[in-house]
Design a protein around this nucleic acid. Structure first.
Lengths: 202, 202
DNA sequence: CCTTTTCTGTATCGATCGCTATATATTTCA
DNA sequence: TGAAATATATAGCGATCGATACAGAAAAGG
């Protein structure tokens, strides 16, 4: 029912990817409609016709970010048969995605909505939930390993998951500040040096 | 030469402290002049007469932040005779300052300028330098301990300093996301579980 | 007293914000 | 070959941004 009328003159997915990069680099408040339309190569009416509003575009950009950057990290974790290596892969793969040539540095979910203006607090709550979900997901992985007998039943899976997500978030800031991929890898490996003590009974 | 004319009707230091809290909570771009004057209890001409511009006010607010929150962390480190405890104090005292009742959560230097609009990149560069200085300072402390024979001469002081500052920055995000002080303390202690392996020869 | 100096309160400034009305261009369906 | 439908381009909406002009108020110096 939408095959009538003048066809869209731009690739919606490509435009979304461009918008994602702008938000990724400058955050929600730091990205103006003019910044976005410039990067997307379209005029503002086309943006609003295709995406609805700046906020809706941002939401869709975050979803696109999670869909494009997330699976790589999950796949790397799944590829590791040993839980310790899966956690390490979580950090090292993050280091990789945080320092891609031609892409903004660091993590969009971590960096793009930390200091909301009064009007945009709702937006940042969604990102906060995404960050909380990261902890939940990692903890689920740890619990699975506990169930499988790979980890002691008495360990505090919540604390360990929180610790490694915290390190990953710090790595996002380091990446934004210009840390090289090698430096981030070193941080990841150094964080794993706490692993034996962390999985020991608290 | 400034004791003539109508006296200022507000306390400049108190107004600066209020402005600092606004920037701390909402970042540079998220804080409007109207937000600032509202919190400071003055009108905009008074703000500009006393501080010059929004950017100058922000710079002064950052300086004020470092002068009020920094010494507590340094004092806690100085109070620890053993270098391991000094590093732990760096993290635990950060956890304390990140979760003060009535103050914004997390660290102003870490959170207030991560996603600059195109026009404000210079401002955030100052904050980036401040964050880099944190690594330098912690590394200096570690080098001192190496010189004193408290740590092995072959250890990578740069890497260890980078790791613990990264953890601290992650803690700032966790604090902003609502983590309790107890949770941050747990993260700090968990990070110290990497210490023995970190100071061992790489 | 009057002049000078500085601060305050009102009332904006031009620029930009997110967003949209309107007219025109380009397509499909009848 | 229209009529209907959708997209684009121009141009500008009201609101807010950071920043100020101006006049009156409040102090010190003469």
């Amino acid at each position: 029912m939408a095959d009538r009328g003048r066809p869209r003159g731009f690739d919606r997915q490509k435009a979304l990817a461009r918008a994602m990069e702008v938000f990724w680099a400058r955050g929600y408040e730091g990205s103006s409609i003019s910044d976005l339309t410039g990067a997307m190569g379209i005029a503002s009416p086309s943006l609003y016709a295709a995406f609805g509003s700046k906020e809706a575009l941002f939401q869709e950009a975050v979803t696109h970010y999670k869909a494009t950057e997330g699976p790589e990290i999950l796949a790397a974790m799944d590829a590791a048969p040993v839980i310790r290596d899966a956690v390490e892969a979580y950090l090292t793969t993050s280091a990789t995605t945080f320092t891609r040539r031609g892409k903004p540095r660091g993590c969009m979910v971590v960096l793009s909505g930390l200091t909301p203006a009064a009007a945009n607090e709702g937006l940042c709550e969604g990102l906060r939930n995404d960050r909380a979900a990261n902890i939940d997901d990692l903890e689920s992985r740890l619990k699975l390993a506990v169930s499988a007998g790979q980890l002691p039943a008495e360990m505090d899976t919540r604390a360990v998951a929180t610790f490694y997500v915290t390190v990953q978030q710090g790595m996002a800031i380091q990446a934004r500040d210009g840390a090289t991929r090698a430096t981030l890898m070193r941080i990841a490996h150094d964080a794993m040096k706490a692993w034996p003590a962390l999985i020991g009974v608290a």
